[in-house]
Design a protein around this nucleic acid. Structure first.
Lengths: 209, 209
DNA sequence: TGATTTATGTATCAATCGATACAGAAAGGG
DNA sequence: CCCTTTCTGTATCGATTGATACATAAATCA
């Protein structure tokens, strides 16, 4: 069923992708409507007609970001055969994604709107919810590792999930500071060094396996 | 030698401290001159007469922040007897400082201005330089540990410094998301779990000490 | 065809941004 | 005393912010 009125003369998804890149590079507050419209190749009335408001555009851009840029990271976490490999691949994919040179460094969800008072509350809350979801996904994978016997029953999945989520967030700032992929992978190596200690059973019967 | 003209009617340092708190809570972009003047209890001409510009005020506020809020963390790093304790106390002090409930959560230097394009370049560069200095201080302490024989000669101080600095940055976002002190300390525990692995000599002769 | 519906481009809107002009007030120097 | 210097409060400045009014263009419906 075709739409009734005059058809849109721009590609809505392509324009949304451009908006995503602007928000990614400049953050929610730092991206002005003028920045957005010039990057999207449209005038502001078209932006408001198609997306509603700056807030709504941002929320759509973040959803697109999650689907497009986050897929590799989520897949790494879900598809790896062991929890250990899942976490390591999750972090290595993160290092790879955050250090791409043909796009902004670091994560839109981590860096897009950190100051609740100035950004609109809904913006900040949405990103916070997505960050919490990232930790929750890690937690699910770790608990599965415990349930499957890969990790000891007394393994503290909650602490480990918090730790690895925090490392990922720190990597965003590190990447934004210009860290190379090698430097990010060094951080991954450090984080994975904690694994065998956290995964060790309380009784030290694994020292000489 | 007393000053010549009409004396200032407000406490410059107290006003600067208020400005610091506003920047800390809202970031550089998010803090408007109106926000600042109302918190400082002065009018905008007084602000510009005393501090020059918003940029200069921010730079002074960050310097004050470094001296006032960073002292405990730096002291923990410098004064601990071993490198291991230095890093652990450094992170534990960070957890404590970032989770104070009577002030903004997380670190002004980590969160104050992450988007180069929108904030003035000098602001972003100053914070970046201070973040780099934090990693450099960690690196110095670790290399001292190697020189003193606490750590093996092949210990990768650079990787470890990058890792622990990144964890600290991640803790800022974690704290800004409302993490409790216990959650931050869980991250510290995770980060310190990596220590004994990174500090282990290449030959596994330390497994049964 | 004419009526309806939706999108586009120009030209703004009120509000807020960072930053000042200006006159008066309060100090020291002479 | 007057002169100079510096700070304070009021009242802005031009620029930019996010968001629209309005006339016109381009499509479908009847």
């Amino acid at each position: 069923m075709p739409v009734r009125g005059r058809p849109r003369t721009f590609d809505r998804t392509a324009a949304l992708r451009r908006a995503m890149e602007v928000f990614w590079a400049k953050g929610y507050e730092g991206a002005s409507i003028s920045d957005l419209t010039s990057a999207m190749g449209i005038n502001s009335p078209s932006l408001y007609a198609a997306f509603g408001s700056k807030e709504a555009l941002f929320l759509e851009a973040v959803e697109l970001y999650t689907q497009v840029e986050g897929t590799d990271i989520w897949c790494a976490l879900e598809k790896a055969p062991t929890a250990r490999q899942a976490v390591e691949r999750f972090l290595r994919q993160t290092a790879k994604a955050y250090s791409q040179t043909d796009r902004p460094q670091g994560c839109l969800i981590a860096l897009g709107a950190l100051h609740q008072d100035s950004s609109r509350g809904a913006i900040c809350d949405d990103l916070r919810r997505r960050r919490a979801e990232s930790r929750a996904a890690l937690l699910r994978r770790l608990k599965r590792g415990v349930a499957e016997g890969e990790l000891p029953k007394d393994f503290d999945s909650s602490t480990a999930a918090t730790f690895y989520a925090t490392v990922q967030h720190g990597m965003s700032i590190q990447a934004r500071d210009g860290a190379s992929r090698a430097a990010l992978l060094a951080t991954v190596a450090g984080a994975m060094a904690a694994w065998k200690v956290m995964a060790a059973r309380t009784r030290r019967d694994k020292c000489r396996p």
